[in-house]
């Protein structure tokens, strides 16, 4: 093999790999669940929190249950650390559903120092055909929302 080609082969491959990964990372979107499903509601709720859109996130909560709170309470209790989430199992039972989610905090992806993770279970109830997040859910600020809790 030509010495010049051999010399630049590995850096070239790595540079190409970096560009390819970068393009994929910045353009790829996670699979979007239907907004009419429990998974879709939890996904939008968490994505809104992650994006800092606390008003949007608050709208996915049970308005009757959380009537004594507002989006600022949610914002105040959200960790500053960035997070991502992966879907676990979800179970439906009539108008109730449970969606299990693993929330991973931090940004590093080093297996020698794994990201901290929190396993959360979201309870959802269906009212007028729409799913709403009910109960005390992450990031746990319900205790500030009056006697409903």
């Amino acid at each position: 093999m030509n010495e010049g080609i051999r010399r630049w082969a590995l850096p070239g491959v790595i540079a190409g790999l970096v560009v390819a990964l970068l393009v994929v990372a910045l353009t790829r979107e996670p699979a979007q669940f239907d907004a009419g499903t429990p998974e879709g509601v939890v996904q939008r709720y968490l994505q809104a929190i992650s994006d800092g859109s606390f008003e949007t996130a608050f709208d996915y909560l049970d308005s009757e249950l959380y009537k004594d709170c507002d989006a600022t309470d949610l914002a105040r209790h959200t960790p500053v650390e960035p997070f991502g989430a992966t879907l676990g199992t979800s179970t439906w039972n009539g108008d109730n559903a449970f969606v299990e989610v693993t929330i991973q905090f931090g940004v590093t992806e080093n297996p020698l120092e794994p990201r901290s993770a929190s396993y959360e279970s979201f309870l959802l109830t269906r009212s007028d055909g729409a799913w709403m997040i009910s109960g005390k859910v992450w990031p746990y600020f319900a205790w500030e929302c009056g006697e409903n809790f």
Binding site: A20, L21, A25, R28, P30, A85, L87, E109
Partner: peptide
Amino acid sequence: LASLANAAFPAGTFVLDRSQQV
């Protein structure tokens, strides 16, 4: 590079906050 690869091909990802990671 591994972190970039994870951001590009996240496993079972539901919600992403990739800007910082990338």
